[in-house]
């Protein structure tokens, strides 16, 4: 019975891991009508709307923040090393 219980637990774990993947895969396959058409995205394509227009600069300043504060991650970019002292 213990083996059956272990197997059940393993199955539950596998389903928990796979379910989100399957849901996303399923949703990705759906043909949802985009409510912002491609020809309506000119403003979003403007360089001033770029979420990260200068990756080399963003990476550097995030590196400074991580070195000077106790928090890390969640803001998109991080650098190596820190100049912490």
């Amino acid at each position: 019975m213990a083996k059956v219980g272990d197997m059940t637990m393993k199955s539950v774990k596998i389903v928990r891991i796979l379910l989100p993947v399957l849901v996303f895969a399923g949703l990705a396959g759906c043909s949802i009508e985009p409510w912002v058409k491609p020809y309506e995205r000119d403003r979003l394509a403007d360089p001033i709307m770029a979420l990260d227009s200068d990756p080399v600069s963003t990476s550097y300043i995030q590196h400074v923040y991580e070195a000077r504060e106790g928090a890390r991650g969640g803001e998109g970019a991080a650098g190596g090393g820190c100049g912490c002292n």
Binding site: R41, S59, A77, G81, C82
Partner: peptide, 22 residues
């Protein structure tokens, strides 16, 4: 030595979010 924090080096240009123009 100046690297004291263990920092995951995940730069935007290596593992960042996708472009607006998908």
């Amino acid at each position: 030595m100046n690297l004291r924090q263990s920092i995951v080096i995940v730069t935007l240009f290596l593992a960042g979010p996708g472009s607006v123009l998908a």
